[in-house]
Design a protein around this nucleic acid. Structure first.
Length: 520
RNA sequence: GGUCCGAUCGUCUAGUUGGCCUAGGACGUGAGAUUUUCAUUCUCAAAAUCGGGGGUUCGAAUCCCCCUCGGACUACCA
C-alpha cells in the first residue's frame, strides 16, 4: 500500500451488523482498494454497558463472507494497534488532559440526576436544556467553581466528566466530499462529554484520537454523524492536528421500503427480508434475526445490490463484480438522499448471480435438499438437472420445488390441472402412450416422431391435449422443461410407471363427453 | 421545539460546466412473441406537470429565494 490513503470501518460491538453498516464498510473498502490505500477494522467498544458478546466475531464473519477484506484490524493486527478501543483505554486520558491544559475542555461534576433535573426544569418553561456556552456557568464545573473547590472535589474522588469547551461565536465549516461545505455556529453546539466518569472516552474523543494516531485520511461514515462533525473538526483544531485532518464523506441513509424512516431490525421481521448479513441469535433474548446468507443470497449479489443503493457508476451498467466496483467506484457519484430498500431488486440481483454459478456450485447448494428427502442420485444426473433448471430460480431454497419430479414421482396431481388438462377419454390415450413407449426405440427423435407427429396426427389431436396430460402424469402439475427431454432423463421404466400410476389414480373423468377431444 | 441534511417514474437512479431532456436506464407492473405446459428469454407499453411558488436567463430538472414535505441529530450511545 504505497500511498497514504487510509480508511477505517469502525463499528461498535453492540449487536449484529446492520445492513447499512455493511454498506458503509463496502464503500470504505471500494475506495481504499481503488486508491491503493489501506482498509482498517477498528472496534469502538467504549460503552461497556452496551457490549454484546459475539458481536465482534459476527462483524468479522459477515464482512469476510462478503469479500470485504482488511489490511489492518483487530483480527489481523497491524502497525497501528491495538485496534480495539477498550485495549487502548490508557491512551486517551493524556489527550483529554492536554485539552484541559490548553483550555479546550473542563471538568464537570454534575451528576446524571442533577442534569435530569435541569432538563425537567427547562422543559417546564418550554425550553430545551443544552450544556453549552450559555448554560455552563450555572452548572457544577471547573469553569463556574473556584480552583480550590475543583481541586478539593478532585482530591475527594468525586465523580466527574470532561467536557469540550466550545468557543463562542465561531463558525465551523465541515467540508464534506458528498455535500460540500456544511457550516454551523459554535453557539448552537453543546459541550459534549469527551471523557466519561467510568474512565472511558466517549466516541468523539476516542474516534478523533484514533483516526489521528492511525493516520486515517478519509472518514466515510453514515449521515447520522453529520451533526457531530463540527465537534470533530473543532477537536482536530484543538489538538493542533488540523493539517492532517481526514476528509469527510457522510453517506445517505438506508430507508424503510415502505413509508419513511431509517431501516430498522423490525422492518426486516415485518416485511420478510433480512436487514442483517448473517443470522443472529440474540444471546439475551434468544431471538433469531435472519441474515442474507442463510436466506440463500449470494455474497456477490448482496455486494452488488448494496453498492448500487446510494451510488452508481454513471453508466447504465448494473451488474458489477467486486473488482469492477473497485475500478468504477467514485465518491462524487454517491447520492445525497436516502435510499429506500427494495426487496424485489435484491431478488433480481440474486437471480442474476445464481445464473453465473456453474452447475457444480448449484448441485452443491441442492445437495442438502436431496438429503432431506432421502434421495440419492448419480452426480452426473444431478448436475444435468441443475444446469437445466437453474434459470428458473432466484434462491437455492427453490431448487427442490422446481426439480423434485426429476428425483421422485409426483405425490399428488394438481386438481386444477386435472380438470383443465385430463380431458375425457384421456386414459385411452395414455395407455397408447405407454404402448408407444414400450415399442419405439427410447430416443428423443424416435419418440418425437411416434408421439408428437404420428400419434397426434392419426388421432386428429393437437399437441397440447396429449402432451399436457402426459406431463401431468410425470410431474403432477403442468410445469417443467421440454417434455421429451424430461422423459429421456427419467428413463423408460420410470416414465411408464408414472403414466400407469396416473391412469389408475386420476382414472377416467367425464366419460360422457368422450368425443370432445376427438374433435379438436 | 432547535440545528443540520435532503427532495426526478411505485422503487433504485441518469441528468455534475443551464440548451443534445417532447427527462434515459434498471427493478416491479401490463401486453405480445417464443414453447406442448410452467418458467426463462425477447419485444413493446404504461409510469415523473423533475415537491409547490416566485425569480435570474433568449432558454432551468439543472442557478437564487421562499414555502412544503421527509430524514438525521439533539445521552456520561455509538
Amino acid at each position: 500500500m504505497s500511498n497514504n490513503i487510509r480508511v477505517r470501518f469502525a463499528p461498535s460491538p453492540t449487536g449484529p451488523l446492520h445492513i447499512g453498516g455493511v454498506r458503509t464498510a463496502l464503500y470504505n473498502y471500494l475506495f481504499a482498494r481503488q486508491q491503493g490505500g489501506s482498509m482498517i477494522l477498528r472496534i469502538e467498544d467504549t460503552d461497556q454497558t452496551r457490549f454484546v458478546p459475539g458481536a465482534e466475531d459476527y462483524i468479522i464473519e459477515a464482512l469476510t463472507w462478503l469479500g470485504i477484506q482488511f489490511d489492518e484490524g483487530v483480527h489481523i493486527g497491524g502497525p497501528f494497534g491495538p485496534y480495539r478501543q477498550s485495549d487502548r483505554k490508557s491512551l486517551y486520558k493524556q489527550y483529554s488532559d492536554q485539552l484541559l491544559q490548553d483550555g479546550w475542555a473542563y471538568y464537570a461534576f454534575d451528576t446524571p440526576e442533577e442534569l435530569e433535573a435541569k432538563r425537567k426544569e427547562y422543559e417546564w418553561n418550554k425550553k430545551t436544556f443544552q450544556y453549552d456556552c450559555n448554560t455552563r456557568l450555572e452548572m457544577q464545573n471547573s469553569l463556574s467553581l473556584s480552583d480550590e473547590e475543583v481541586k478539593r472535589r478532585l482530591q475527594d474522588g468525586e465523580q466527574y466528566v470532561i467536557r469540550f469547551k466550545f468557543p463562542q461565536d465561531t463558525e465551523i465549516t465541515v467540508h464534506d466530499l458528498i455535500r460540500g461545505d456544511v457550516t454551523m455556529s459554535s453557539n448552537l453546539l453543546d459541550d459534549k462529554v469527551l471523557f466519561k466518569s467510568d474512565g472511558m472516552p466517549t466516541y468523539h474523543l476516542a474516534n478523533i484520537v484514533d483516526d489521528h494516531l492511525m493516520q486515517i485520511s478519509h472518514v466515510i461514515r453514515g449521515e447520522e454523524w453529520l451533526p457531530s462533525a463540527p465537534l470533530h473538526v473543532m477537536l482536530y483544531k484543538a489538538f493542533g492536528w488540523k493539517d492532517t485532518m481526514p476528509q469527510f464523506a457522510h453517506l445517505p441513509l438506508l430507508l424503510k421500503p415502505e413509508g419513511n424512516g431509517k431501516l430498522s431490525k423490525r422492518d426486516g421481521d415485518r416485511l420478510g427480508f433480512p436487514v442483517f448479513p448473517l443470522d443472529w441469535l440474540d444471546p439475551k433474548s434468544g431471538e433469531l434475526s435472519h441474515g442474507y446468507r442463510e436466506q440463500g443470497y449470494l455474497p456477490q449479489a448482496v455486494v452488488n445490490m448494496l453498492a448500487l443503493l446510494g451510488w452508481n457508476p454513471g453508466t447504465e451498467q448494473e451488474i458489477m463484480s467486486m473488482n469492477e466496483l473497485i475500478k468504477l467506484f467514485d465518491i462524487a457519484h454517491i447520492s445525497k438522499s436516502g435510499a429506500k430498500f427494495n426487496v424485489e431488486k435484491a431478488k433480481w440481483f440474486n437471480h442474476e448471480y445464481l445464473q453465473k454459478c456453474d452447475d457444480e456450485e448449484i448441485a452443491k447448494m441442492f445437495a442438502p435438499q436431496l438429503r432431506e428427502h432421502n434421495i440419492t442420485a448419480p452426480h452426473d444426473y444431478v448436475l444435468k438437472v441443475c444446469g437445466m433448471m437453474k434459470e428458473r430460480i432466484s434462491f437455492p431454497s427453490e431448487l427442490w420445488d422446481t426439480m423434485y419430479y426429476f428425483f421422485e414421482p409426483p405425490k399428488e396431481y394438481n386438481p386444477k390441472d386435472i380438470q383443465k388438462r385430463w380431458k375425457p377419454g384421456m386414459t385411452v390415450h395414455m395407455r397408447k402412450v405407454v404402448e408407444i413407449l414400450n415399442t419405439v426405440p427410447f430416443e428423443y427423435d424416435a419418440l418425437h416422431k411416434a408421439l408428437l407427429e404420428d400419434y397426434i396426427k392419426s388421432n386428429e389431436l393437437n399437441m397440447g391435449q396429449i402432451m399436457n396430460s402426459f406431463r401431468l402424469a410425470l410431474v403432477g402439475e403442468t410445469k417443467g422443461p421440454d417434455l421429451l427431454t424430461l422423459v429421456i432423463m427419467l428413463g423408460k421404466d420410470e416414465t411408464i410407471a408414472r403414466v400407469q400410476r396416473a391412469i389408475s389414480v386420476i382414472g377416467e373423468v367425464n366419460t360422457t363427453n368422450n368425443n370432445v377431444i376427438e374433435k379438436h
